[in-house]
């Protein structure tokens, strides 16, 4: 039986797809058979970030409609063993997904895989609900910024009321906070909410802090998940987060800027 992980946020553009790509790659690298599903029907993008856009033949909606089977549709990653991608449809609209259809596909994948990572679309409407509905764990991707934090809180409300586990009265979804696009220098200047501030407001377990980093854009340009750029701060931060997810204790890095000359002189 697979663990189903939804990567969600409410607010758009905060780093869900970046995180889904990094996380699924990290889990597979750690030896777990992993599939990552693009739930953003109509706005397929995970394939580009994973670098497999030219190998898409069938998609999630084709599988739900019985037009193709999983074997024909899953794309095997070329770099990492154990890693597969289930692309979203580019042409259909988001009503093409149904609760029952999604449930069936997830159940079939569950027989084969250890982890199923669901890359949620933005918003708190149908598409996001479907991505979260069957989840066992949730990675709530948040930027240190007011609207993102507020939306994350609303998503937490949905996770605890509108999902399968909530409706069945089972043990609640395990929620993890992933704070991304973090700038320690700006936090130090009092211009950006700190990880402590966000943690205090959302009050869920902190899985990791991913710094604002040029390496993320470079990675997406190349179609290589940033976690594979082991020289980069963001890549290392994602690797730490995956290790923590798998139960390892690791200290949080990249929470402070190395002080420049003036900073050292004046302290603070």
């Amino acid at each position: 039986m697979a663990r189903i992980i939804v990567v969600t946020s409410g607010k758009g553009g905060v780093g869900k797809t970046t995180t889904s790509a990094a996380f699924s790659t990290g889990l597979a690298k750690a030896g777990h058979k992993t599939v990552v599903i693009d739930f953003d029907v109509g706005l397929r993008n995970l394939d580009l970030i994973m670098g497999c856009e030219r190998r898409v033949v069938y998609d999630f909606v084709n599988v739900i409609n019985g037009e193709a089977n999983l074997g024909q549709t899953l794309i095997k990653d070329k770099r990492i063993d154990n890693l597969f991608i289930l692309p979203a449809s580019q042409t259909r609209d988001k009503d093409a997904l149904t609760l029952e259809g999604v449930g069936k596909v997830l159940e079939e994948l569950s027989q084969e895989f250890d982890y199923i990572v669901c890359d949620s679309p933005a918003g708190i409407e149908r598409g996001a609900l479907l991505a979260a509905y069957y989840a066992d764990e949730a990675i709530v991707v948040t930027n240190p910024e007011v609207s993102s934090v507020r939306d994350s809180d609303r998503v937490l409300g949905i996770l605890s009321s509108k999902t399968r586990r909530a409706e069945k009265g089972e043990e609640p979804i395990k929620e993890h906070l992933l704070l991304t696009r973090y700038s320690p220098a700006r936090v130090q200047k009092g211009e950006m909410l700190s990880v402590e501030d966000v943690g205090e407001i959302l009050a869920i377990d902190l899985l990791g802090v991913i710094p604002e980093s040029k390496s993320v854009l470079n990675a997406s340009n190349a179609g290589v998940p940033v976690i594979l750029d082991q020289q980069s701060d963001a890549g290392q931060a994602y690797e730490d987060a995956v290790a923590r997810f798998l139960g390892e204790q690791r200290p949080h890095r990249f929470l402070s800027e190395k002080k420049g000359f003036l900073g050292r002189l004046f302290g603070s």
Binding site: V146, G157, K189, E191, L193, D197
Partner: peptide, 23 residues
């Protein structure tokens, strides 16, 4: 007061309010 402190205060108020009407 730093702008981050203002942000935190505003967030705490709105989030607390939204939580009471949730669910």
């Amino acid at each position: 007061k730093s702008s981050a402190a203002v942000a935190k205060e505003r967030l705490q108020i709105i989030v607390a309010h939204e939580r009471t009407t949730r669910g």
